[in-house]
Design a protein around this nucleic acid. Structure first.
Lengths: 193, 193
DNA sequence: TCACTAATTCGATTATCATCTAATTAGATG
DNA sequence: CATCTAATTAGATGATAATCGAATTAGTGA
């Protein structure tokens, strides 16, 4: 997880002086005293900020005689700015987890026997979610269940009620608080049913 | 200048706990105690962070019985994340891109036919921006458009709707997120109209 | 109305950090 | 080498902010 890098980037840009420096450097490279003059600050203060920007790779520098010019790395800036948008994307299934009605029907027909019991829990994530969502209709919205009651609801459909119950929680169909269970609002479900 | 807003946004995201909250909420809404549990923090701490995220508009909330669910506003997140990339762009352009009313009028008169259609897209940047800003008045602020709808708005004026649409995005008149389009606030436009 | 639950406020503690001044370093030039 | 310039370091100060526990509030349901 690149969490630290993302945090560091935003922390560095969470300061008006550094935002001003970045904005200034978009127009072209500048040296320390020029920046200090434009911003009305001391050169040492600029060194301080420039060091932070350099540490995150946002600027680099080139020496010309006694003067050090600072350049903005616009590509790095863009990469880092967009990183937050991709964060957590890996575990994010909602979009790809769109299932149309026909597909749902076919999955349910495959995994449930004629007498209505669940033959086995699908191992493929998408199919598993469809089965879990199908079964959860047995749970009444708003009602609080004890763990035993949950098990009794599941048992007629499948003997491994513990796994089903755990999957419901893990996939945000339900919510557990000190051994009491309640249905979550549908917005929290991993797929629309 | 939206400097303060940009600084505030990055300051808010410059904290590991808040990044984690944002990442969690990408999977779907959660309530306070659930977040506290997942992150191993106290509810009051979550309130603290959530307040900051709410103040910058990144999350909103909805009450369900006793529980308040927090939702991530992904569009706001994206807009704010990209704001730094456009910063200075306006002022850079605004200086050179000052156009007085008379000049605008003359440009529009030159490039639009009597029947109101655009004769051709100007190649000179300044003139092109004037034309783009003139056309964008067809887009309603706040309304979300599908790509097809955008094209239909442009078509009566010019056959090459794809180029116009692309130029609108490239010059920050509009904003696109997974094939949905929305007008940007005028502060982001490359010139005042 | 009363009890319950989730959220919030408040105050205290601790850590981080922006800025300054003064002193020092690094390189360039004569 | 001596001197100049620009940048950096070090230390001090004041402000901001993350977290917690305790007390309080808001809203629900009986």
């Amino acid at each position: 997880m690149q969490l630290d890098k993302v945090v560091q980037f935003h922390k560095v840009l969470g300061d008006p002086t550094r935002i001003k420096i970045v904005t200034l450097l978009k127009h072209g490279p500048l040296h320390g005293q020029a920046i200090a003059n434009k911003l009305g600050l001391r050169p040492s203060t600029i060194t301080h900020h420039v060091a932070k920007l350099r540490d995150t790779g946002l600027i680099f520098q080139r020496r010309d005689r006694n003067t050090i010019y600072f350049y903005l790395d616009e590509k790095k800036l863009e990469q880092n700015a967009k990183a937050i948008l991709a964060m957590g994307e890996e575990t994010r299934m909602k979009q790809e987890m769109q299932v149309n009605e026909k597909e749902k029907l076919s999955i349910i027909k495959n995994f449930f026997a004629k007498d209505g019991t669940l033959k086995q829990i699908p191992s493929q994530r998408k199919k598993k979610l469809v089965v879990l969502a199908y079964l959860i209709r047995q749970i009444e919205p708003g009602r609080i269940y004890e763990e035993k009651e949950i098990n009794e609801v599941i048992l007629p459909f499948h003997e491994d009620y513990a796994t089903i119950r755990r999957e419901w929680i893990m996939n945000h169909f339900m919510y557990r608080s000190n051994n009491q269970y309640e249905l979550n609002p549908k917005e929290m479900w991993p797929l629309i049913f």
